[in-house]
Design a protein around this nucleic acid. Structure first.
Lengths: 227, 227, 227, 227
DNA sequence: CATGAATGAGGTTTCATTCAT
DNA sequence: TATGAATGAAACCTCATTCAT
């Protein structure tokens, strides 16, 4: 919610070798503190301590707390988005069903691979919602989805923008929801199956030329709508 | 992210009429400050000022800042959830298509009716994610969905819990996404249509006795897949 | 040297009675700390401590350190400038000699009355040189001098602006110099005498038509000096 | 205002040619940073950056920040004082009028030649007021003035110390004042003329035996004033 | 009940200085 | 000698909360 978009990646370029280590340690410490204490109790001092460096060092690489969080978020989002991009790229030319299955798998694996981090950084994403990072990542995801969907072997879409928007936003909720309460593993599997089903079902009904399908559907409507 | 769940509704019961006004003013002020400044810059003093009362007065109705935010969030969520509950209640016995259409309508109207408040309070919800309020509201929504889906005229579901979980979580993302960037009204309409379609498509493929449906579906697949 | 001109008098208006006391205490503490430790070692905490209040209280009346110093400086300068204004006002219609004598007296008394404060705040004035306070005070002094000089009984001046500029700036150095090194009282008296002499001599040679004026002056001297 | 007088010239003697360049670069960088950012924002790192060296190098030539500023100030003051000394030396045996004219010229030229530096370093001088540098420079100026005044062709002075003190302190204000506000060139010329006039007038009235001298002078005035 | 002045712990950030490379 | 990463004390400032009026 911060108004001024954090000047994104102000990570002072590490000239010497040890710098890289330091930056890496700070990143990990940030996520750890975020997980253990939450964003409200995260302080730059705590992060520095956890990273085994002094506050001063932290500030040599990140101009301020917001930039630190922004960079940490970016790193995390980048991992998730990259996974999505990779999946999309590999899925070109496949059918809707294959796409749905693989995409959901990749997405869930990426998010649930480090569930604590995902959970903790989601809050950061909300606070930095107006920041460029989030917008950019969202764009990248939707672009990848567009590119993939355009090549679907069994469908063409009128407005890819809307469809990719739907997909990228609708998948988040169900997966994110799994992070907030202790759920049994089988519930996770059920959700995954439902997500694949939902994705496939949505994409099929969103195809542009649902020719015969549309006709049958229309008839079905006439029958079912007597109210 | 704060660990200690704010003892939920510590709002001293407004015994007098004047008190009711004061509390109301404080609630509105909270949302306004949240919208204008964001959660990071929201202070109890600013809220009190905006509400036209002194900090002391604010603390007479809310034991601490977290309780204030919690109550404000609860109020907002309650409106949305109530709209969903009402819709669900009215939709009992209807078909999947009607349910989808009306449910999405009700949900979007509730969320987009006060977009700024929705956006601002969403961040609060994240920060208080572990708090009871959010969990309770989620439960209420899913319960209402369960009750409604159980009466669908054209479907029965094996695991209503999973389906209602899917619905309640999947709808949020696409609608929330509309709040973060300036989007043209027609995009909102497109998203709504897609959301209706997605909901209906999902529910249809999720019904337990895909008897006739499954058959028709299978045929459709055979026809549509060769391309 | 600070670029952004301190938003001068942001002293939150004291609504209650005790506020006035608090502000007064803070002002005095500021000067005391300034005298004892100098500007480099002056911290808001030290000032608050010395004033017997908490830092928070200090910041309720002054938005930041610069504003505090600015206000303290203004207060001091105002005393000096007011003394000059009063003297100028009382001296209207007098001769150059009388003006010189009285003006220098008033100025020195004002500055040397609280020598430590004068010395300490002079440094502040330098650091805030670009701020409005200093400029305004300078203007007030020169304006008062202009008004006075315009009424001199034994002189008229072509460019009052330049003359008043000269006077107001030239007097400062010799008096300020007395503050920096331990000087014997008789040296102070000598400087005062010299300053009176210099002022009178300067004004006489600066008058526009020293011809007839000089004659009248000479006569006037003979008459007025017997005392 | 710092109590501990910076151990004056701790500038490691630049034994090699390279060193001399480095020190020179650091000096210039100091003044530049001072001009652009002011003393409050001057940091050793910024100075080093500007000088094109590392902080470590800076600290090899100056034991600490104060010594750096002290040395920079000394350098600047030395230029001004040297100009005054040279002028005084060359003016021996001259008349008051010639002395006034030339002295003021030399002083103004020295100060206004690099107005930004003069302005910026003046603040430094204030902060280091108690340091030896400033005192020494002041002494040198006054000594030079004493030596010169003692040889005036048309005057003798009772207390040269007081007179030279007056001159050296009174000239600063009017010239310094020109640095703080944007003034038109003609105002500078006016001030210069007034300063010459003031100096001459002061010195004349400060002569010990103004008896015969005054008479001669009066005559000269009558002759020279017809314009 | 309302007020708002006071509190002070604690968070963010800076920067002079050091020292291993 | 030069470098620049690292240090950490200390400064500035905020704000949730209390309590005398």
């Amino acid at each position: 919610m911060t108004r001024l978009n954090a000047r994104a990646k102000p990570v002072r370029a590490p000239v010497q070798a040890r710098s890289a280590n330091t930056v890496e340690a700070i990143f990990q410490a940030t996520v750890q503190v975020l997980i253990q204490l939450g964003i409200k109790q995260l302080t730059t001092t705590k992060v520095a301590d956890r990273a085994g460096v002094s506050v001063g060092t932290l500030y040599q690489y990140f101009p301020n707390k917001e930039a630190l969080l922004c960079a940490a978020l970016e790193r995390h989002l980048n991992a998730v988005v990259s996974a999505v991009e990779a999946a999309c790229s590999a899925l070109k030319g496949q059918s809707i069903d294959v796409m749905s299955e693989t995409l959901v798998s990749a997405f869930m694996q990426a998010k649930l691979g480090a569930p604590d981090a995902s959970k903790a950084l989601y809050v950061v994403a909300q606070e930095l919602a107006s920041a460029d990072v989030v917008a950019l990542m969202t764009q990248r995801s939707q672009l990848a989805l567009c590119d993939m969907l355009a090549t679907a072997s069994d469908a063409t879409f009128n407005d890819l923008r809307v469809v990719s928007y739907m997909l990228s936003t609708a998948l988040v909720g169900p997966v994110q929801g799994l992070l907030h309460t202790e759920v049994p593993p089988e519930f996770v599997q059920q959700v995954k199956a439902q997500l694949v089903g939902m994705t496939a079902a949505y994409l099929k009904q969103a195809r542009s030329s649902p020719l015969t399908a549309a006709v049958r559907h229309a008839r079905a409507e006439q029958v079912s709508l007597p109210n």
